[in-house]
């Protein structure tokens, strides 16, 4: 379980996160929704120690995140970046097997076997393994990034805007993949998105981040019928955009 307690973060004097309290429960799919620039990605990056908070604490499985524990905590977390962030100079196979080679010192045959296994799991063609990220489409990049995140069978997978920039068909396929991986690997998935349809479609729980605070947290059912002002405004703006 991940427990975020009283996290605050400012950039250039502007408070982005203001005393955030949130738990990620084991096995659930939690989606954090909110407007662009509200600090959703910052919150995810704080939990893996990519950004330091100004105050507050993060506990991952009862271990306090700090400079001494951050590398061990990261081994429990897979992170899928919005930009996919595959290493451009490495092939897809090398990207996916990177942690196995440099953290777990596995031999080449074992790495290859595990990489192919993972590539199949994310429904990528095996031919993609030898290709370089610059030759992949958006959907393939996202699948490769997911493969890299899950190869160590992490307990938690963080997805930063996993469907942004993808066409609706590929976006739905990625959502289905997230759902199936969550069931197959029995992981806890935390998704950051501003796509309400996606959030409602795959989440167990939705949290709304606005004005630096968690203004709503509840099940999909609660989210659909809530009278929360922030949720209603966000939904109205989202569906208005969809209609246009």
């Amino acid at each position: 379980m991940v427990i975020i307690k009283d996290i605050c973060k400012s950039f250039n004097g502007k408070r982005v996160l203001n005393s955030i309290n949130l738990d990620f429960c084991d096995g659930e799919i939690l989606t954090i929704v909110g407007k662009s620039g509200v600090g959703k990605s910052v919150l995810l990056k704080l939990v893996v120690g990519l950004i330091d908070s100004d105050s507050g604490s993060v506990n991952v499985d009862s271990i306090l995140l700090d400079k001494n524990t951050v590398y061990n905590i990261r081994k429990k977390i897979g992170f899928v970046f919005q930009s996919s962030a595959l290493i451009e100079s490495l092939s897809v196979e090398e990207n996916i097997g990177l942690a196995l080679r440099y953290i777990y010192n596995l031999d080449d045959d074992t790495i290859k076997r595990k990489v192919i296994e993972t590539i199949r799991m994310v429904k990528l063609d095996e031919k993609v393994a030898s290709m370089y990220p610059s030759n992949l489409s958006g959907g393939m990049l996202k699948r490769a990034a997911i493969a890299r995140a899950i190869i160590l069978k992490p307990k938690y997978i963080f997805y930063d805007e996993p469907t942004t920039g993808l066409d609706p068909i590929v976006a739905r396929a990625i959502e289905e993949l997230i759902l199936s991986l969550n069931n197959k690997l029995n992981t806890t998935s935390i998704i950051v998105t501003h796509d309400i349809n996606s959030a409602v479609g795959i989440s167990d729980r939705i949290a709304m981040l606005s004005k630096g605070k968690i203004t709503f947290s509840g099940t999909v059912g609660d989210f659909n019928k809530t009278e929360n002002q922030y949720v209603k405004e966000f939904k109205a703006a989202y569906f208005l955009k969809q209609e246009k």
Binding site: V48, R74, A85, L86, Y102
Partner: peptide, 20 residues
Amino acid sequence: TMKVSEEIDALKTMAIDPYD
């Protein structure tokens, strides 16, 4: 370029130290 395209952050999340 790796830094601005989040590749360095990706290494960190895999528990790989970029200095190493």
